[in-house]
Design a protein around this nucleic acid. Structure first.
Lengths: 166, 166
DNA sequence: GTTTTACTTGTTATATCATAACAAAATTCT
DNA sequence: AGAATTTTGTTATGATATAACAAGTAAAAC
């Protein structure tokens, strides 16, 4: 399974990455008095294992294979919990869910989404955030949440295919 | 910074605003050899009349009331056309559609969405766009489209309700 | 350590958003 | 008019998400 993680631009050990995310998640939940139950924990792992945004029903199918309940509320409850805890993000333009790489630091999830390979890179630019907050404030608007989803071609796909489709 | 936004929080004559959008739309379609048929034109008007994001099925219901066909493809085809022509935007985080205030100028649709009153302001900040393009490029990413949806409290609602809901 | 409480999960049903596939009609081109 | 293209009608289904209520489980209070 180490092969399909064609995910990000930088090589890394995907298992380490999942383990780290999970132990961060556990620490955060304990700290906040939240319960990372079996299904929530497994959902988070599965999202990380895909390492690209996973649809709710894809996730549900994986959970069902492992003996969890297979009705939609199961997966949406897990997703709600993980979203609320800041452990995952929803990519609105894809209706899909992605592990949050910086759950421990307060941050905004900004995404670069490749149209060809559908990999997603999360990035976190404080200066853009600051500019958005300030510009919203000029219109009297108090910012609470940001959905920043940029699509285009990642470095690899830009080189490969000019007109081809995935 | 001038006040580039320009539509929602400022008083304006809504009818003028719709008429202007429609005549821009007509001009653009002719220019591009596209056909702004009855249903497309009426869909665009209805979206503008709501002046806040309209769901596909809400729009479908309105069209059906006026004697248009009431099957979903009717409305999705109209929406696809209008999106393709740049006459409307889709607000991904709401699954809803909004008239584009600057259809004639190439631009990115950035939105401020109020959590309380659900009004949406479109804004267009060239400097943020430039920063995003540049930062994406640093990661080898070639930007094609941007989904920038900021939620929070608009000026009116910030004053009114601190904890109340709409 | 049992009761009470809060939280979590199971279950059924349904709401909401969107597209596939193919037929019919209208428009445009020659 | 005839052919080609585009648009619309129609039926069916896929994909995403939530409501409502019952049952179970863990934590807190006693």
């Amino acid at each position: 399974m180490k092969h399909e993680d064609a995910h990000q631009h930088v090589h890394h050990n995907h298992n380490d990455c999942i383990e780290s995310a999970l132990s961060t998640a556990e620490a955060l939940c304990i700290q906040q008095g939240q319960r990372l139950t079996k299904v929530r924990r497994r959902a988070l792992e599965l999202i990380w294992e895909s390492h690209r945004p996973l649809g709710a029903y894809q996730l549900l199918a994986k959970l069902a294979e492992e003996g969890f309940n297979s009705a939609p509320p199961t997966v949406y409850r897990a997703l709600d919990f993980l979203l609320g805890a800041g452990l995952i993000h929803k990519v609105e333009s894809m209706n899909a869910y992605l592990g949050c790489a910086h759950a421990d630091k307060a941050h905004k999830g900004y995404f670069l989404i490749c149209d060809e390979c559908h990999n997603v890179m999360e990035f976190d630019y404080q200066d853009i955030h600051a500019a958005l907050v300030e510009k919203a404030a000029r219109q009297g608007f108090e910012l609470r949440a940001e959905t920043i989803e940029l699509t285009g071609l990642c470095e690899k796909c830009k080189g490969k295919s000019v007109g081809a489709s995935a």
